[in-house]
Design a binder for these strands. Structure first.
Lengths: 241, 241
DNA sequence: GCTTAAAGAGTGGTCATACCACCAGATTAC
DNA sequence: GTAATCTGGTGGTATGACCACTCTTTAAGC
């Protein structure tokens, strides 16, 4: 029967943390709020303090709670970091699955490009223009730290210009994961992209111009082609690494 | 200084779980392996069993360990589901922002359609074909439970056909969240989609045909148009709800 | 009367011990 | 030879004690 899941909550600590999560999801606890103390939870739930601590420890690792020694336990504002750590852990163990995360990134970036073309506020459009100008100014220097920084700035600003905070958060998360886990030495990457700086710049500029022209289909198409080429190149590098 | 993070490991249980994770990342512990017992860990690490249990509880929630009462503690094979739970939590907290979730779904579905056109295995292509046939057979019945089930099956099978387990898992999750959180009564939805069943069917069929023809750009384009219309319609409904 | 230091209360953190419940393997009985 | 029982080892939970941190209150000194 689809939709039914095996009953898996069986440890006392699991029951405790499910209740706490439910309170948060239902809005009865909001970020910044203080949770009951360990002793109060223990009393209310009729369980030992050790079981309560196990549940709180798990929620702490999951980034849901912030525990302050001598002060109390506070609800954390959910942030991408809560998703990053498990993802990084998986990617560290299954490095060949980087391709999967790159495809998710491509999906989100193409959508962001289209939405940015629809919604980009003027100040972010100016910021994109400025990034493109800086990219052009650094062309004679070839690849380097500066070019990489500008590339990242461009993509993250575009995600922000989508005016969808979920996409923006996911993009921030994914870019950080990719940055942390790709096992490509800088020299290898730089040698691989040698001669393509001009092309990358032109593609970035075309994305910007499509966004500026409010042409969402063109923005999507160019971003798709741009990232498809990047994926192909990275797949080639990974195969020979 | 970029790359440096505040030293945050300070609780005994945090130190324990970091060591266990390091053993796994370095390959000294592999999925399926049995971890030392709680009492052994307590002895080796010179900490109490309660601290060990706190660490293990956290790793259990994170999907890294599998704890079997009376048997032992085993290393789990990492799976995308470990990522899903924190992501689901974030999505559930921002469920009021359904529009944002729908845009993330559109991004993933369009990418899945393109990848499915490239990679769809024959058995899934046959399954898609069968779903399309069942859709055609139920057309005279109009909207209903059957049509909704077929719609969901179509989209989830397409996600599976992308051969990207991350996309597939995310899609499963997002569909479930959308199903849980959309504040649209069934009657309202059915009345809103009255007269569009034929169009929805035709769009699904065109997506299938594009996938069958291995035309990834067309698959992407039709999926994009399909979901864009759904989003527009839902936005209209939400505004009047 | 104001400032500073100490005390107190409440909080989270860790530990030791005891006992329960589950599981797999070994042993015994038929 | 097979099934039932026993045993030892495992995870699960509880209780109580004490430590360390933080904030508030109170008292002492100027």
């Amino acid at each position: 029967m689809k939709g039914l899941k095996p009953v898996k909550t069986r440890r006392t600590s699991e029951g405790i943390l499910e209740q706490i999560k439910t309170l948060i999801i239902e809005g009865q606890l909001a970020p910044g709020d203080k949770l009951l103390t360990e002793r109060e939870l223990s009393e209310r739930l009729q369980v030992s303090r050790a079981s309560v601590r196990e549940a709180l420890s798990a929620l702490n690792l999951a980034g849901i709670l912030e525990i302050k020694h001598g002060e109390g336990i506070f609800i954390k504002r959910p942030e991408p970091n809560a998703v990053i750590e498990p993802l990084v852990f998986i990617l560290l163990l299954e490095k060949d699955k980087v391709q999967n995360i790159l495809e998710v990134r491509k999906a989100l970036e193409v959508e962001a490009a289209g939405l940015a073309a629809e919604r980009c506020p003027p100040e972010l459009l100016r910021e994109l223009e400025q990034i493109i100008e800086e990219m052009e100014a650094t062309l004679p220097q070839g690849e380097g730290e500066k070019a990489a920084q500008l590339d990242l700035r461009f993509h993250l600003t575009l995600a922000q210009a989508s005016c969808n905070p979920l996409i923006s958060s996911l993009m921030n998360t994914i870019q950080e994961i990719i940055g942390q886990t790709l096992r490509i030495t800088r020299a290898l990457w730089l040698s691989a992209t040698a001669g393509t700086t001009q092309r990358l710049f032109e593609e970035h500029r075309e994305i910007y111009l499509a966004v500026a022209a409010r042409d969402k289909f063109r923005a999507r198409e160019i971003m798709y082609q741009h990232l498809w080429k990047v994926e192909v190149e990275l797949a080639r590098l990974l195969k020979h690494a």
